[in-house]
Design a binder for these strands. Sequence first.
DNA 1: TTTTACATCACCAATTTTGGTGATATACTT
DNA 2: AAGTATATCACCAAAATTGGTGATGTAAAA
Lengths: 222, 222
Amino acid sequence: METKIKIHLADDHQVLIDGLLAVLKTNPLFEVVGFSLDGEGLVDRVAENDAHVLIMDINMPEKDGIQVLREFSEKGFTCKVIILSSYDDPKLIKEVIKLGASGYLTKQSAGESILDAIMAVYEGKQYFSSNIKDKIFDIFTENNHREALKAEDAIANITTRELEILGYICEEKSGRDIGELLNISPNTVETHRKNLMKKLKVKSSVGLVLFATKHNLINLNQ
Amino acid sequence: METKIKIHLADDHQVLIDGLLAVLKTNPLFEVVGFSLDGEGLVDRVAENDAHVLIMDINMPEKDGIQVLREFSEKGFTCKVIILSSYDDPKLIKEVIKLGASGYLTKQSAGESILDAIMAVYEGKQYFSSNIKDKIFDIFTENNHREALKAEDAIANITTRELEILGYICEEKSGRDIGELLNISPNTVETHRKNLMKKLKVKSSVGLVLFATKHNLINLNQ
DNA sequence: TTTTACATCACCAATTTTGGTGATATACTT
DNA sequence: AAGTATATCACCAAAATTGGTGATGTAAAA
């Protein structure tokens, strides 16, 4: 009897987990060695169970899929990762591929394609569902995405400090408020704000907020 | 042999459908008589197969769960509906209950609770997952909900002119710009802005933009 | 008819933002 | 060692925003 492929599932929707468990149980090649409802401690759990393949959602509480992927590459794990997400945003796809994911499926995909994906990545190949392939094609061809790419570049050039200040601006805080919160001079805050406006090519704080909301740089709640 | 409970599944995520199929297949009491990946023609398909229970997501292409529920009550169907959604927004829960749904589960729920829910609604009872029960409790105690209601009131009190100006503010236009666009004095524009800020209880234009985006008062594109 | 709501405008003072330039220190690359 | 990126701060002037009060005309509602 040959070794089964060890699989770990991570998704905050337990119905989906339970469904996948039922699906994977039908095939003797696969063995689900664990599952997680959030990203907290996920990397360790995967390592513990020595899973070959991790099937993971992006949106998870505590720690999202992006952060988990980052941790994986930092710690140099060899476990293959398949992203199973509702979203097919080209930016997101590009990001997870860059971070070393071996496959990407949307939740619109059929259950069977998951089995194919697992086989493929286990054998060291990559696997993308057809709609994701289309999106990837878009990234490399379409001029349509110019704007988005420009924005992406801009986002990439935002420093962590600037992002922090952007967050406070999006909470209706004034320059002075932010200065007090961070124990820096309001002048410094305004410098950061100006640099942000220049980088993001907007004309005012309103523009900053719009950019942040459009590109999900901040979370609107609280 | 007694009659099986006939079930129809509707969700735009096929992996979830496939998962649920696998789960439901384990129990001989249930029979899945059909499934749909969108809301188009869903009502007719459910009627055709004479399903007892419909398990449905809210977010679906073509026609969402709310519209489907509306159609159900218009046509007077007796098929029980269980909503299976990612969201637990009190407003949404209230809405679907009003529209006659018999159950509401979040996708965070365990797969087994779906079986319980099906049994319950088939017997004419209602079924809500525990986190949904909490939300319903919130609606009646109105702790959480107060904010939302306040916001709704505020929205209702915005005049059309104010809304128009809010739109321009959300396009990064200055008071003077807006005045020129509308052929009114910048002073008037600022008065409108001030009234808006007072009504919406925000401290700055940034607050206005946040309010507008949160409540979909404007469209972010262009 | 009186009241209320709406849109309009003005004036004012205090504060904030915007848009520059320039400087310093630290850390990291090449 | 020189260059680059980042975070820090200062100073300045112009422009915009904010927070008031008060006033007018119009239209709709009580």
